[in-house]
Amino acid sequence: MSNAQTSVPPPTRTATTRNLGLIAILGSVVLALLGLFFTAEDVVQGSSVRIMYVHVPTAWVAYLAFVFTAVCSAGYLRGKKHSLNLDRLAGASAEVGVIFMGLTLVTGSLWGRLSWGTYWDWDPRLTTTVFLFVTYVGYLAVRGLGGTQQQRAKRSAIVALFAVIEIPLVHFSVLLWRSLHQEATVLRPNGDVRMDGLMLFSLVFGVAVFTVIFAWLVLHRNRVLALVDAVEMRGIDAALAARHAEGVPT
């Protein structure tokens, strides 16, 4: 079954991905210009607010990636065909998600250092983010355990669904934990944020651009993973053919 699904490697280059790549590059340039030059400084935060134009989109992409991984994993388990392509999409998406979650943590702590005066605060959202990061690092480790492709797919799909159950529980319990122990919240710049029109536009624009980058990365990574699987199957086929050629019944 796995042989049939991987024997024809998909093309590594299509018009769609090329256009997506172009949009991503152009969008990134425009976002950089908007974020660094055209938007104004924040009244309270000064220039450090510019980190937000990267921080918020990376966080968005990470969450999007993990949701996508869960959807693909559920699709793999539910589908009668047990499509390996869905499994590879889940894996590709999780890889991208882990990278962007890492970026979110880095940009977030840099911003925190500037705005709160500390790299880290035991805020429920921050704490859950770290757990998400570690959980999906674990998920990627499970993907690398070996075995047949269908074994890998089934195993990682179940672990991905477990991760989906765990994360709300972790978030909920951290929320309770903080609500009891933290009397004064660390200085949070004005609760109701009023945003300048261009700032808001840049933020939304950043989210859109990063979503395109996510799609581009996942499509390419998915193709690479398909090729890796195909190479593995070819290796097995070649080994079988060699045995046949030797005249040994298999």
Binding site: F131, V134, T135, V137, G138, A141, V142, L145, V159, F162, E166, L169, V170, F172, S173, V174
Partner: peptide, 12 residues
């Protein structure tokens, strides 16, 4: 692999 998978999930 066990500690990596288990410990974060046991936080609650």
């Amino acid at each position: 692999l066990l500690p990596l998978l288990l410990l974060p999930a046991l936080a609650p």
